[in-house]
Amino acid sequence: MPASTLDRTTALVLVDLQKGITGLPTVHPAAEVVARGARLAEAFRSRGLPVVLVNVTGGAPGRTEARRPGGTPPADWAELVPELDRRPGDILVTKERWGAFHGTDLDAELRRRGVTQIVFGGIATSIGVESSARAAYEHGYHVTIAVDAVTDLDADAHRNSVQRIFPRLGETDSTEAIIGLLG
């Protein structure tokens, strides 16, 4: 369902737009996803709304290195891409698992600011973004996904999230439509 409205206290959560992930081959060009994420971030900041930048530094203990080609990631793997133009007022969430809520203070940070709705973007659609959106829904937030600001490493997984999962969690729309709803 297209996005119909945004709550007065909506936050933007951009998941895993970091050097090590944006450099992987994705279904839609990562550079375009990053550019849309940066555009959303600027629109939210200009309206005084919270921007959350999420990066991932780990996985299940003892298993992450086995799944990553080449073993240990480069030193800058978890650094956010510079295009996001991180600002002092942005909330940084560093996670160890797929979802941005598990084992982090994200929920407390959002509740402290009175946030009732979250707009999501990032990589990978079916992993970090979907896990975070599911948790947001379970925590009682209204969920909106900027579907042109997400991409995945797998086309079928991306399509499943966008067509089957996200519409069950909330609303979906384009970056431009969501910015238009900010007023």
Results as ranks from 00 to 15, higher is better:
R68Y: 12
R86F: 05
R45C: 02
A78K: 00
N55M: 06
G70E: 00
P61R: 10
R63W: 09
T57G: 13
T64F: 15
F44D: 05
T57H: 11
E65P: 01
L53I: 12
A43R: 10
A41M: 11
T64W: 15
T64N: 05
P74Y: 04
D85V: 11
G58K: 02
V81C: 09
L80Q: 05
R67M: 15
V56R: 13
V54C: 03
A66M: 10
R67F: 15
V52E: 07
P69I: 11
L80E: 07
R67P: 00
R63N: 04
A41S: 10
R67N: 05
N55A: 08
G71P: 00
L53E: 10
G58V: 01
T72K: 12
D85E: 13
E42R: 15
A66P: 01
D76G: 02
T64Q: 14
P73F: 13
V56Y: 03
T64E: 13
P73G: 07
F44V: 02
V52F: 11
R63F: 13
E83I: 07
V81Y: 13
G71L: 02
D85P: 01
L53A: 12
L84K: 09
G62L: 00
R67G: 03
A78S: 06
W77H: 15
S46A: 15
T64M: 14
G58D: 05
T64A: 14
G59T: 05
W77N: 11
L80D: 05
G62F: 03
E65D: 07
L53S: 06
P73N: 03
A41Q: 04
W77F: 15
P74H: 06
A41E: 06
A66E: 05
T72C: 01
A43P: 04
G59C: 04
W77C: 08
P69L: 09
L80H: 15
A60N: 12
V56N: 13
E42G: 15
E79G: 01
N55S: 14
G58P: 00
R86A: 15
P82W: 13
A66V: 13
D85A: 15
